[in-house]
Amino acid sequence: MRESEDEWTGLMRLAISGDSAAYQRLLKAVTPVLRAGARRGLARAGQPTDQSEDVVQDILLAVHLKRHTWDANAPFAPWLFAIARNKLIDSLRRRGRRVFVNIDDFAESIPDEPPAETASANEVATLLQTLPTRQREVLQSIAVESTSIRDTAAKFAMSEGAVRVALHRALTSLTAKLREH
Results as ranks from 00 to 15, higher is better:
G161Y: 06
L174N: 12
A157P: 03
L60F: 13
V138L: 12
R136A: 01
E3C: 02
A43W: 10
A82Y: 13
E117W: 01
T118S: 14
P132K: 01
L34V: 10
G46Q: 13
E7A: 05
A62F: 05
G161S: 11
A74P: 03
L42H: 06
S159Y: 11
R2L: 11
W79K: 10
A154R: 08
N102S: 13
S120W: 05
R85S: 15
P48A: 04
I59S: 05
R13W: 00
F156W: 08
H64V: 09
S146K: 05
P32N: 00
W70P: 01
E113C: 00
E123P: 09
S20A: 02
L42Y: 05
A82K: 15
A22V: 02
I16D: 04
L128M: 15
T9C: 05
A116M: 01
D19Y: 07
A166H: 03
S120E: 09
R44N: 08
A153I: 02
D6M: 12
S148L: 05
R44P: 02
D104F: 06
F100P: 00
D105L: 15
Q57T: 06
H64M: 00
A121G: 07
L167Y: 08
R169C: 12
A119F: 06
E108P: 08
S173N: 12
D151W: 04
L88V: 09
W8T: 02
L178W: 10
P78Q: 07
K66F: 11
S17C: 04
S159V: 05
R164E: 08
T69C: 02
N73S: 15
N122S: 07
A36W: 15
T130C: 06
F156V: 02
K66Y: 07
E180F: 10
M158Q: 08
L61K: 14
G18P: 09
V144C: 09
P111S: 06
V101M: 11
I149R: 01
Q135E: 11
K155F: 08
R35M: 14
A38K: 09
D105M: 07
D58F: 12
Q24W: 01
W8V: 03
I149W: 01
G18Y: 03
T172H: 15
L80T: 10
V63N: 03
R40G: 12
D151E: 11
G161A: 09
L167G: 05
